[in-house]
């Protein structure tokens, strides 16, 4: 188990990140991205913040316990990539 911090980038600039001060225990690094997407989906579906006009402008900037960047997960990643073999009728 390691602790990862899911900081949210919501606008450009030094004030544009909300630091996650508690962090979450994640069993292995392969699950970090899925965890971030789960939180993003729940925020998009259920939470309205006056200060966030569009959740899809946000991204998780995930750091480890040493404060080093681990990965960035944009909220837009909850939408699966369009595939070439899209079903008939899809744009």
């Amino acid at each position: 188990m390691a602790r990862y911090f899911f900081n949210i980038r919501h606008k450009p600039g030094p004030d544009g990140v909300a630091d996650d001060i508690d962090g979450d225990e994640i069993a292995d690094i392969g699950q970090v991205r899925e965890h971030a997407l789960g939180v993003a989906r729940d925020l998009i579906a259920r939470t309205r913040l006056d200060s966030i006009a569009n959740w899809f402008d946000c991204a998780f900037e995930i750091t480890d316990e040493q404060g080093h960047p681990v990965m960035t997960v944009p909220f837009t990643d909850i939408v699966p990539d369009e595939k070439d073999d899209a079903p008939v009728g899809a744009e």
């Binding site: 949210i8 909300a18 996650d20 508690d22």
Partner: peptide, 21 residues
């Protein structure tokens, strides 16, 4: 923040953003 997130029924990340605001 964890406690606040439970009480308000939102993700902790939402609480963190609201507190920052």
């Amino acid at each position: 923040h964890e406690f606040l997130s439970t009480m308000l029924g939102v993700q902790r990340a939402g609480v963190t953003l609201a507190l920052q605001n």
